[in-house]
């Protein structure tokens, strides 16, 4: 495979590491969730790249076409996207509740409030 053929996977790794870094390094709960979403999205791109075959077309029966992309990874990732949305929604709901009871969405301030009581 040429250098260019691996381009997608380089992007995937880059996005994944950026997302992972945000999750670890950021103290803001909403930003953490953004990082988490980025992290998950990079895996979606990986799956979509897996199914692509060079010179192939979408897997719909057309006259005169013999080479199709593999639809299975794409279908799988539809499920994973739904799961990802559910996770993000639940995470944001938790952040709303945290904001209501702590009055802040910063990790260090939450720790400080827990220590003091």
């Amino acid at each position: 495979m040429s250098e260019f053929g691996l381009f997608n996977y380089w992007v995937v790794m880059l996005l994944m590491m950026i997302g992972f870094y945000i999750v670890i390094a950021q103290g803001n709960l909403v930003k953490k969730l953004i990082g988490l979403t980025l992290f998950q999205t990079s895996v979606f791109i990986m799956y979509i790249s897996l199914g692509k075959i060079e010179g192939a077309t979408a897997p719909i029966l057309i006259e005169g076409v013999t080479l199709y992309s593999n639809p299975l990874p794409h279908v799988l990732i539809l499920t994973a996207i739904v799961v990802g949305i559910a996770t993000t929604a639940l995470g944001l709901a938790l952040v709303v509740r945290i904001k209501e009871s702590y009055g802040t969405v910063e990790e260090d301030e939450i720790h400080a409030k827990d220590e003091s009581c």
Partner: peptide
């Protein structure tokens, strides 16, 4: 509990 759940969500999703 909210904070614990949030932490679990982050770790679990990773």
């Amino acid at each position: 509990a909210l904070w614990a759940s949030y932490q679990y969500l982050i770790a679990g999703t990773i």
